[in-house]
Amino acid sequence: VSVELPAPSSWKKLFYPNKVGSVKKTEVVFVAPTGEEISNRKQLEQYLKSHPGNPAIAEFDWTTSG
């Protein structure tokens, strides 16, 4: 189950709350306009370098507050 949070234009930000008793931590995933899922800052940096014209990296908020 995921919750969609505010994201930069043409992107989606999905929040996957951890299940009770789960060892997996809460996860935030950005979905690029191409449909590619980005789950960490390093991936995001690589994606933005190879896909010019996207929002600046500073516009991506990895917190769950939206």
Results as ranks from 00 to 15, higher is better:
D61H: 07
K13D: 02
K42L: 12
G21P: 07
R41K: 12
A56H: 13
Q43W: 05
P55I: 06
D61N: 08
V28N: 00
E59A: 09
G66Y: 09
L5G: 06
T63S: 14
D61P: 02
S9P: 15
F30L: 03
P52D: 06
T63V: 06
P55M: 04
S50D: 13
V3D: 05
V1F: 12
V29N: 03
E27A: 15
H51M: 03
V3E: 07
A56K: 09
V3T: 08
E45Y: 13
W62A: 01
S65D: 13
S65V: 11
Q43G: 06
G66K: 10
E36W: 02
K19G: 14
V31S: 02
L44K: 00
Y16L: 07
V31K: 05
K42C: 14
G66C: 13
N18I: 10
K12W: 04
V29I: 12
K12P: 03
T64M: 09
P6S: 08
A56R: 08
T26E: 13
E36H: 07
E37I: 15
P55W: 11
F30G: 00
Y16S: 05
K13P: 02
I57Q: 06
W11L: 01
A32R: 00
V31L: 10
S22Y: 08
S10H: 14
S65F: 10
P33M: 02
P8C: 07
S9D: 14
K19I: 13
S50C: 08
E36N: 03
R41N: 09
T26N: 14
F60W: 02
P33C: 02
A32M: 00
V3Q: 07
L5N: 05
W11M: 01
S50W: 08
T63W: 05
Y16C: 07
P6G: 07
W62F: 08
H51R: 03
L48D: 00
V1A: 11
H51L: 02
F15E: 07
P55H: 06
G35T: 01
Q46H: 09
T26C: 15
D61E: 07
W11Q: 01
V1T: 11
T34P: 01
E37V: 15
K49R: 12
K25E: 13
E4H: 08
P52E: 06
P33E: 02
A7R: 03
E27C: 15
W11K: 02
A56E: 11
G21T: 08
A7K: 04
E36T: 04
V28L: 07
N40Q: 05
S50F: 09
K49F: 13
Y16K: 09
A7Y: 04
I38S: 00
L14A: 03
N54Y: 04
E59N: 06
G35E: 02
S39L: 12
A32L: 01
F60M: 01
W11I: 02
S65I: 10
L5W: 07
Y16T: 07
P17Q: 12
V28Q: 01
S50K: 10
E45P: 00
N18T: 09
E45W: 14
G66T: 11
K12G: 05
P33R: 02
P8Y: 04
P8H: 05
K24A: 14
